[in-house]
């Protein structure tokens, strides 16, 4: 009767920001990003991509509670970079990787269909 709608798990409610950013008050170049209505899929690829950046000293994500549909990504960088820069870089790199993957997959599909 009072069950929440199923779509609450993945539709960002009106008036809520998809991504919010909070700088760490004690550590320079550290910040937390709150991603609304996201989970391990995005959290884990972002974390792993951030680990490829040598200016990233720490990158991790957490799903605070299974009924709170958000993840928190925490980034700490060297003074050569900033959490925001590293975050943007990670998304751009992943986006390009997926573009490459899509092309590679479609080329391979063409090759296979010619063989049959």
């Amino acid at each position: 009767m009072n069950a929440p709608d199923r779509y609450e798990r993945f539709v960002v409610p009106e008036g809520t920001k998809k991504v919010s950013y909070e700088r760490d008050t004690k550590i320079i170049n550290a910040a937390s990003f709150t991603l609304e209505r996201e989970e391990h899929t995005i959290g884990n690829i972002l974390r792993m991509q951030l680990h490829r950046d040598p200016n990233v000293l720490f990158a991790g994500y957490k799903l605070p509670h299974p009924l709170q549909y958000k993840i928190i990504v925490r980034i700490h960088t060297t003074s050569q970079s900033s959490p925001m820069q590293a975050y943007n870089q990670a998304i751009n790199d992943l986006d390009r990787e997926l573009n490459h993957l899509k092309n590679a997959f479609e080329e391979e599909m063409m090759r296979i269909s010619r063989e049959y």
Binding site: Q49, R52, D53, Q89, N92, D93, R96, E97, H100, L101, A104, F105, E108, M109, R111, I112
Partner: peptide, 11 residues
């Protein structure tokens, strides 16, 4: 600067 990967696919 980019830390992008270039995955390969084989069907």
């Amino acid at each position: 600067v980019s830390y992008q990967r270039f995955p390969k696919v084989k069907i």
